[in-house]
Amino acid sequence: MDLSTMSIGMHQASLQNAVSISVMKMVMNSRTEIATQMTEMMSNMAVDTSKGINIDVRV
Results as ranks from 00 to 15, higher is better:
R58V: 10
D2L: 03
A18K: 04
V57S: 11
E33R: 12
R58H: 07
A46K: 15
N17C: 06
V59W: 04
T32G: 15
V57C: 09
A46H: 14
I34T: 10
M42Q: 14
D2M: 04
R31W: 00
T36S: 15
I34S: 07
I8Y: 02
Q16A: 09
G9L: 09
T36M: 11
I8N: 11
D48V: 04
S7K: 14
I53L: 06
T5Q: 15
N44V: 01
T5C: 10
S14V: 00
V27Q: 05
K25C: 06
V19S: 03
N54M: 09
V59M: 14
I55V: 13
N54E: 13
S4V: 05
L3T: 10
V59T: 13
T36P: 01
R31E: 08
M26R: 12
M42D: 15
E33L: 12
V23G: 04
D48E: 08
M41K: 14
N17I: 02
V23Y: 03
R58W: 00
M28C: 13
M41F: 08
Q37A: 08
V59C: 10
M6L: 12
V59A: 15
N44G: 05
Q12S: 11
A35D: 14
M24R: 12
N29D: 10
E33Y: 04
I8K: 14
G52K: 02
S4A: 12
N44Y: 00
A13D: 05
G52C: 01
Q12E: 09
D56E: 14
M1F: 03
K51W: 00
A18L: 04
E33A: 15
I8M: 11
V27P: 02
T39R: 13
T5I: 08
A35G: 09
M1G: 14
T32F: 03
N44R: 11
N54F: 06
A13R: 02
V59H: 13
M38D: 09
L3Y: 03
A18T: 05
L3H: 11
H11T: 07
S30H: 10
V23F: 04
V19G: 01
M45D: 03
M41V: 07
V47Q: 09
G9S: 12
N29S: 08
M45I: 03
V27T: 03
A46G: 15
S20W: 00
R31A: 11
V59I: 12
I55K: 12
Q12M: 09
V59Y: 11
D48Q: 08
L15M: 03
T49K: 12
N54K: 13
Q37E: 06
T39I: 05
M45H: 01
D2F: 01
L3A: 15
I8D: 12
M41G: 07
L3I: 09
S22I: 00
E33G: 09
M10D: 13
S30A: 15
T36N: 15
I34D: 06
E33Q: 12
M45S: 08
V19E: 04
E40G: 08
N29F: 02
Q16P: 01
V23K: 08
D56Y: 04
I21C: 04
M24K: 11
V19L: 07
K51S: 14
I55W: 02
N29P: 00
D48L: 02
E33H: 07
T36W: 03
M10Q: 13
T5H: 10
S7C: 08
M26N: 13
L3C: 08
S14Y: 01
S22T: 06
M28N: 15
D2P: 04
V23E: 14
S43G: 06
E40C: 03
S30R: 12
V27A: 07
